[in-house]
């Protein structure tokens, strides 16, 4: 069984490496948040591999890391949703010049 966990451990490390590569090289925010999700997935898999290695103790897997991964997935989803909303709002402001004027006028008083 340990061969299988090793295989998935390598898979997790590979995902993290690919994700970091994408995150550091891409300039587009949407692509970067996808790369962030790749890294996150890899990290969660690492937890999963750690949980599965507990099979040596006579259990199928350790449920504690599983619970952490579920929490982690939820948090990563929240992060992605917030980032995407920011990206879209920014794109909207940058393509719609009328929206730009009003906040600039406010600039002076609310700095």
């Amino acid at each position: 069984m340990s061969d299988v966990t090793t295989l998935y451990g390598l898979c997790a490390s590979g995902l993290i490496a690919i994700g970091i590569y994408g995150f550091s090289l891409q300039s587009e925010p949407l692509r970067r948040i996808i790369s962030f999700n790749l890294i996150g997935t890899g990290v969660f898999l690492l937890f999963g591999v750690a949980a599965r290695r507990a099979a040596a103790a006579g259990f199928l897997a350790d449920p504690v890391p599983h619970a952490m991964v579920i929490t982690g997935i939820v948090v990563a989803f929240a992060a992605t949703a917030l980032t995407v909303a920011l990206i879209l709002r920014l794109a909207e402001l940058n393509t719609d010049p009328e929206e730009n004027i009003q906040p600039e006028a406010r600039d002076e008083k609310s700095a």
Partner: peptide, 21 residues
């Protein structure tokens, strides 16, 4: 970095500690 993570994550003791019990 990937190799490092793999080595750090998989190189542990033969009977990995766990909270399952």
């Amino acid at each position: 970095m990937g190799v490092g993570i793999a080595a750090a994550a998989l190189g542990g003791p033969d009977l990995p500690p766990t909270l399952a019990p």
